[in-house]
Design a protein around this nucleic acid. Sequence first.
DNA 1: CAAAACTGAACCAATATTGGGCCAATATAG
DNA 2: CTATATTGGCCCAATATTGGTTCAGTTTTG
Lengths: 224, 224
Amino acid sequence: MNKLGAVDIATVLRREIAKGGYQKHDRLPSSRRLAETYGVARNTLREALRHLEREGLLETRPGSGTYVRYQPDNSTVPVIESANPLELIDARFALEPHICRLGVLHGRREHFQTLEALCESMEQSVDDPLAFAESDTEFHRVLASATRNNLLIWIIGQINAVRSMDEWMRMRHLTLGPQIIAQYNVQHRLILEAIRAREPERAANRMKEHLETARLSLTRAADT
Amino acid sequence: MNKLGAVDIATVLRREIAKGGYQKHDRLPSSRRLAETYGVARNTLREALRHLEREGLLETRPGSGTYVRYQPDNSTVPVIESANPLELIDARFALEPHICRLGVLHGRREHFQTLEALCESMEQSVDDPLAFAESDTEFHRVLASATRNNLLIWIIGQINAVRSMDEWMRMRHLTLGPQIIAQYNVQHRLILEAIRAREPERAANRMKEHLETARLSLTRAADT
DNA sequence: CAAAACTGAACCAATATTGGGCCAATATAG
DNA sequence: CTATATTGGCCCAATATTGGTTCAGTTTTG
């Protein structure tokens, strides 16, 4: 694990405050206690607090404590950033099967060609989780494009932009082994096939299976 | 698997930064640690960092660390404002049936009580399209809350923001006659009933019927 | 084969962190 | 009100960590 420095502590606390873990006028735990909980010397922690104070997030009153002096703006801190992987899978469960149906109805040849190319790209990335993940995201994005519904395209874009940091990243690395990737590839193929055959319900069902697989490997990874 | 070189590492890190895995002012792990995690010599990794520094993505302070000096442009906003009513119905078609299912699974008594109250409110607004529309929007919002999935709640919130746009408002006045409202009320009741009976599929199907009705009255209005 | 790239190790200077002690301001208990 | 505990503020010397640099040996590439 990374050795924590003042800057790191500062960012952790900054995000905690932004997320609402510490709210306005709350008093933070004492510097000594915070130092202990983050496993860091008090001086280091004080350096972190000094950063946040310069940024105007905190106000420190000697002898009393340090207080949160910031109200997270709900419009600039989208909930979307704090979404967890399981919420995300549920959201995709709601959206993507129907996106498949609409893709069958409104998709054009160029969409299907792009999806085909992405399938091939993913099949060549069995041993490269990073490249696979990228193509996978793109696959679902193009699928949304096939609906030609700007609202849905936008929503999927937002969902793909979920970058809920550590948790999600760790999950990804844990879950994307070669055999999982291989399974995903088969499922992507089946979905694309059903769409090209213009069978909306079959495409939707295969998407459901795909997402069920994804959820399973997520929960399995979470048990680790 | 391919041996990784400096350029590859640079690419990986560049994507990681663009994706937001490392955000502005974050400190990267130390060169030694990064070298280890990517399975590469420290010199190679430093070469990669040098590339990214030349590109202006990073700033390195000897003795301290290397820091991200780049904020990905995240301003993909106003598409949602140009959504038309039919796109919107399709999006709701994707989302709301599954929201019903999740509402059955995760909804609590207070959600159902609120929905109950909203039904009553709507039933007393048969002759007041404006009041009805307001409660109707709220009904679907609370339904989303019942999933207790913040991502879905957020998405529905965004969609409701679209519903309040001009074009939609005009449509509303065209479509919302007393007998349509009455029909909606019946359907809302049926949906709520199925959810309370903990029957996810029935609830989802009734929602589909409801949305189908809404789509019909929309297209009829568009023909006028 | 030869050039280029990567490796692994050592060493350096700059900076950060540590752990300790002590102080003054504030809060709390009696 | 007073005694005591807790809080942040500050300083210091020892130590750890970080990026910067060099170089001989190995691997990969063309």
